[in-house]
Simulated assay, not measured.
Amino acid sequence: MKNILVINSGSSSLKFQLIEMPSEKVLASGLVERIGLETGKVHYKSEKFSTSEEMQVKNHSVALKKVTKYLMDPENGVISDPSEIPAIGHRVVHGGDAFSDTVVIDEKVKATVKELFSLAPLHNPPNLNGIEVAEEIFPQAKQVAVFDTAFHQSIPSEANRYAIPNEFYEKHHIQVYGFHGTSHKYVSEKATEMLSKANSKLITVHLGNGCSITAVKNGKSVDHSLGFGPVNGLIMGTRSGDIDQSVIFYLIEQLGYTAKEVSDLLHHKSGMLGLTGYSDLRDIEEQAEKGNRECQLALDMNAYRIKKYIGAYAAAMNGLDAVVFTAGIGENSNVIRKLVCSDMDYLGIELDLEKNDERSKENREISKLDSKVKVLVIPTNEELEIAKQTFAMIS
């Protein structure tokens, strides 16, 4: 048995799980939030102890040191020494075209992650910071990087290239990279197990505040809705998803917006928030039920966009075995699943409404027994996937 510490460093947060492998037992988990602000919060949970503590957390180093203190607490901790953690798995959002798989981190890897800051300015800098802090606190542990983009490196050229002059691809590496790859990989593997069919054609639908959809053929990502950055594709909590490029030119040239203002608009003020004033889907569903037409329209638009991608990906793969819903909205919103799967019988998708309404945290099938295409709900577990890949690197 080996303990794998999984770290997901955000700009002002640090999520963690300590997982015993290969048993996959979660020994401890938690979140440090509001890092760098006047008042931070540390959440920690293990089998025998849980707490939430308010304190100032100046930086990620302070955050991880606090987590380590909880892990090694003489009375309530789960380990007695840092050496009991032989490896640490880090989520790194953007690996560009440099990384197609999980890697043990060295100076060259860190330098490449730094070079990619411009492609993921909100994510890669704190990801690298988390790595450097972990190296300081756990010098004896192997540091392993698991890239969100790696799973999508298998997307073929006809699907990952943009129809712009070749020099932008060759010199500047502008192409589809994709995101949420760790989640799509995890749920597609679970779906393959549930179907007992190795050569399967799946569409995995990751719906949270950020949303994406992937065509997975025989275990490989072959197309994906997010591209060079994380703003296109499906309608998200605050992100617009697909939009006519002419709208961007119009905003700049006719309405006087700067490029930075347009970026902020499309990333932080659009999507469900822009359509309804709410970014949390639970609030939108509640308002729609009360007769709010804007909220109902937003739900219809959201589902319609997903349906279009399902149709396109079924055509691209020349078939479909299952549609898989995952992440916070995908796992919990029976409303969105119903809207997406309605009037899809031509593709062989027939939802069982009673199964769809059931509340469960388990992997489950919610389609009718005779549905040609299965509809599955599989809770994602990115931390476990990172732990599995990290464990494989040291075994």
Rank of each mutant, 00 (worst) to 15 (best):
K2G: 05
I4D: 06
S9P: 06
Q17L: 10
L18R: 05
A28H: 04
G30K: 15
L31T: 01
G40D: 02
G40W: 05
V42K: 15
H43W: 14
S46K: 10
F49H: 14
S50N: 15
T51F: 09
E54M: 11
L64W: 11
K66D: 06
M72A: 06
E75N: 09
D81H: 12
V92H: 13
H94P: 00
V109W: 02
V113E: 01
S118Q: 13
V146F: 05
S154C: 07
E158S: 12
R161A: 07
E170M: 09
K171E: 13
H173K: 15
H180F: 03
S188I: 02
E189L: 11
M194C: 02
K197V: 02
N209K: 10
N218S: 12
N218T: 08
S221D: 06
D223V: 05
H224Y: 12
P230G: 05
G241S: 06
T258V: 06
K260T: 15
S270F: 01
L275A: 10
T276I: 00
S279M: 04
S279W: 02
L281S: 07
E289N: 11
G291I: 07
D300V: 13
K308S: 07
A312H: 08
N318S: 15
G319D: 02
D321A: 07
V323N: 01
F325E: 00
S333F: 02
V340I: 11
V340M: 06
S342H: 08
D343N: 15
D357Q: 14
R364Y: 04
S367W: 01
L376N: 08
P379E: 03
K388G: 00
